[in-house]
Design a binder for these strands. Structure first.
Lengths: 195, 195
DNA sequence: TGCATTACATACTAATTAGTATTTAAAAGC
DNA sequence: GCTTTTAAATACTAATTAGTATGTAATGCA
C-alpha cells in the first residue's frame, strides 16, 4: 500500500473506532486528527468533507467487516436453524472488536444518522438488505430440505431475526452483555419451532 | 400551573420534540431557545446545565409517556398472548407522536447516550426494566391460567420481546414503517407458539 | 406597602466546530 | 535533472457551542 493510501486507511480506521464509541456527530474532525496524528491538510486532501469520510467509512470499513460476520456464514448454509443461531452467537459473543457497551456500529449509525443523511441511510440499508436476503435464502433452503415447515414465511423470519439482533444490541448497551445469552437462548426456541 | 412551571414544561416538551428528531447531542441549547422563545436566562434558571434538562426530560416526559403505552396495557392482562401483541401493535402503529422515521425516543436515547452518560442510562433502564417485568408477569399469569406452556421461561420471553421492539424501531428508521407489519405478523407466530 | 425571593432577560466569554487558503514537501514522469 | 502532479503541513476564519455575569421585572408574603 502506498503511503497516501495508508494515510487514507488510517483516517478511516481510527474514525471508525472513535465513531463506534462516541457516535458520528460527537466525533469531531479535530478529534480524529488528534488521535491519528494526521494533519487537517491531509484529511481534507483525502475527503472533501466530514460526510464524505463518513460514507467511505461505512462502505470500506463497516460494510465489509459486518458482511463477513453476518452474511458470509449463511452462504451455503447446511442447516438454517443451527447456522442462523451460530452466526448470531459468534456476532454477539465472539467478534473481538465489538463491545456490548458500544453496541453494533451499523445499528448505531442507522439509529443516529438515517433520519439525517439519506446517503448514510442507503449505504446502511444495503448491508441490512443483504443480511435479510441471506437469512431468507437459508430459510428457503431449509424449506426445500424439509428442515423448516412449508408454511413458514422466510421473509418474515428474516425481518424478525434482524430486528432481534438490532434490538439486543441496543439493550446490551444499557443492560450489559448478560442479556445476549438470554436472547440467544430464546432465539434458539424461536428457530427450533420453525421446524 | 404557575407561569414558571409552565416555562419549565414548555422547555421540556419542545426539547423532547427536537431531541426525538435530531438526537440529544445534535440539539443545542440555542436551538431549543430559538424554537421555544425562552431566553437563556430562563433556561439556566430552571436547569443548571443541559444534562440536567435531559435527565428531567427522560423522567418527566419520556418515562410517563412510554410507560402508559408499554406497561399500563399489560397490568391486569387477561390473555398475555393477545395482550402483548395488541400492546405492540398500538405502540408501533397507533401512538400519534411516534414516527417510523424517528424511531422510539427511549430507544434512540439508549443508543446514543447510555455509553456516554451513566445517569441517562439508569433512568432509561428503569423504563425497560419495568416493561420487561410487566411482560414477564403477564406471561407468568398465562402460565397459571394454562394459556402458556409450563416450560416457557417468562424472563427470556420478556427479553426477546423487548429486544424485538427496539430492533424493529431501528429497522423502521431506515426501511420505513412497512416492516412494522411484517414484524407484528411474525411476533404473533412467536407468541402463539408459547401456548 | 415594603422587601425578599423567584423568574427571567441581555450581553458576554472561551472553547470548539467544519472548512478554507496558502505554502511546502515528496513522488512520478519525461 | 527538471517539471508536474500528488500529498500533506500550517495558519487562518466564521459560526456555533455550553455556560456565566449581571441586571431587571414579576410575585409572594409579613
Amino acid at each position: 500500500m502506498s503511503k497516501a493510501a495508508n494515510t487514507r486507511t488510517m483516517i478511516l480506521t481510527k474514525s471508525f473506532e472513535l465513531i463506534y464509541k462516541q457516535g458520528y456527530q460527537a466525533t469531531s474532525i479535530d478529534n480524529i486528527l488528534a488521535t491519528t496524528q494526521v494533519t487537517k491538510g491531509a484529511f481534507f486532501y483525502h475527503f472533501k468533507n466530514k460526510d464524505e469520510m463518513g460514507l467511505a467509512m461505512i462502505n470500506e470499513i463497516i460494510f465489509p467487516g459486518m458482511y463477513a460476520s453476518l452474511v458470509t456464514p449463511l452462504l451455503n448454509a447446511k442447516s438454517p436453524i443451527n447456522d442462523i443461531h451460530e452466526m448470531m452467537r459468534i456476532v454477539l459473543l465472539k467478534v473481538p472488536f465489538l463491545r456490548a457497551k458500544y453496541g453494533c456500529p451499523a445499528v448505531n449509525l442507522i439509529e443516529e444518522m438515517s433520519p439525517l443523511n439519506e446517503e448514510f441511510k442507503q449505504a446502511l440499508l444495503k448491508l441490512t438488505d443483504q443480511w435479510q436476503d441471506a437469512i431468507k435464502e437459508s430459510i428457503n433452503q431449509g424449506k426445500a430440505s424439509g428442515e423448516v415447515r412449508a408454511d413458514v414465511n422466510a421473509e418474515y423470519v428474516a425481518c424478525f431475526v434482524v430486528a432481534g439482533y438490532s434490538g439486543i444490541r441496543n439493550m446490551g448497551k444499557a443492560a450489559g452483555s448478560a442479556c445476549y445469552n438470554i436472547y440467544l437462548q430464546e432465539l434458539k426456541n424461536y428457530l427450533k419451532q420453525l421446524g
